[in-house]
Every structure is written in structure tokens, then in C-alpha cells.
């Protein structure tokens, strides 16, 4: 599509949408959001890009093959589960630690966040795999 309005709008929207998706991912454990919806937002951003500039340009801008993203996502999920396994607890046990941020207080980080990041990656990978291939069709 060669709509000038869309082309310009995407350039502005993309960074915002991507930042929003990370925002959703990080806050998801306590507030509405999470890896799944965050991943969907990021994937929508890339889908928009692909519609406006074409799948080839989107692939080049993304730099990573969406299939690789799926693999990386599933690998991250497995890794987050394996942390529990290595420490002698059942697979996928959630382990937590406090990250001291000085003046900003302590931030609880744990393997569930890693798990959510894996979901985030695989959702992006799945959606983009399908959308890119349909767009190229």
C-alpha cells in the first residue's frame, strides 16, 4: 500500500507500540498485561509495518527470522523452567529474588518473568511467521 498518511503514521506509531508492548510485558505480573498481550501488540506493530512497506522490508527491519523468534521463545521458556530443575526443585518452579534499585526500592524478579518473556517472543514469532508469509503470497 502506498498511502502517505499510513507511511508517516507507522514511523511514529512503531516505536510507541513497541515500547508499549515491553511496558505490558514488564507490568503484567501485577497489572493487566503480560507476555501474551505484549507480544500481540508488538506483532501488530510489525504487521502494520509489513502492510505499509511490504513483508520484505519488514523482514529486513526485523533482522531475525520469525521462526527463530519462535525457537528462541520456546527455548527461553524451557530455560526458565530448567532453573528450578537445576536447583533441585521440580521443573518450572518459580524462583524469586529481590533486585535492589537503590533509591527506587527493590524490584522482585524471578523466573516467571523470564517465562513471560519467552511467551512474548514466541507470540511475536508465530504471528509474524503467518502474516509475513500471507503478505508475500
Amino acid at each position: 500500500m502506498t498511502s502517505l498518511i499510513l507511511q508517516v503514521a507507522v514511523r511514529v506509531l512503531m516505536p510507541l507500540l513497541l515500547m508499549f508492548s515491553v511496558f505490558l510485558l514488564v507490568r503484567g505480573h501485577n497489572l493487566p498485561g503480560g507476555g501474551f498481550s505484549g507480544g500481540l501488540v508488538a506483532a501488530s506493530a510489525w504487521a502494520l509495518f509489513a502492510i505499509v512497506y511490504g513483508a520484505g522490508a519488514a523482514r529486513r527491519a526485523l533482522r531475525v527470522d520469525p521462526l527463530t523468534l519462535i525457537a528462541a521463545g520456546l527455548g527461553t521458556i524451557l530455560a526458565s523452567g530448567a532453573v528450578g530443575l537445576v536447583s533441585g526443585r521440580p521443573f518450572l518452579t518459580g524462583l524469586w529474588g529481590a533486585l535492589d534499585l537503590g533509591a527506587y526500592g527493590a524490584w522482585m524478579v524471578g523466573t516467571p518473568l523470564l517465562f513471560d518473556f519467552g511467551v512474548y517472543l514466541s507470540v511475536i514469532g508465530v504471528v509474524l511467521t503467518i502474516i509475513f508469509v500471507l503478505e508475500e503470497e
Binding site: 503484567g28 505480573h29 501485577n30 497489572l31 493487566p32 498485561g33 503480560g34 507476555g35 501474551f36 521463545g73 520456546l74 521458556i77 524451557l78 523452567g81 521443573f91 518450572l92 518459580g94 524469586w96 522482585m108 524471578g110 516467571p112 518473568l113 517465562f115 513471560d116 519467552g118 511467551v119 514466541s122 507470540v123
Partner: peptide, 22 residues
């Protein structure tokens, strides 16, 4: 350590299901 129960279920309580779905 999470107040969003939906997300806690997805990534912790039912983590294995989510892994399967992914």
C-alpha cells in the same frame, strides 16, 4: 509475588500448560 492473577496462572501456576500452548 504477583497481583495479576490471570498472569500468575499463565506463567506460574499453570506454566506447563502455557508451555504446551506456546
Amino acid at each position: 509475588h504477583g497481583r495479576n492473577i490471570v498472569n500468575v496462572i499463565l506463567v506460574d501456576f499453570r506454566g506447563l500448560d502455557t508451555l504446551g500452548e506456546a
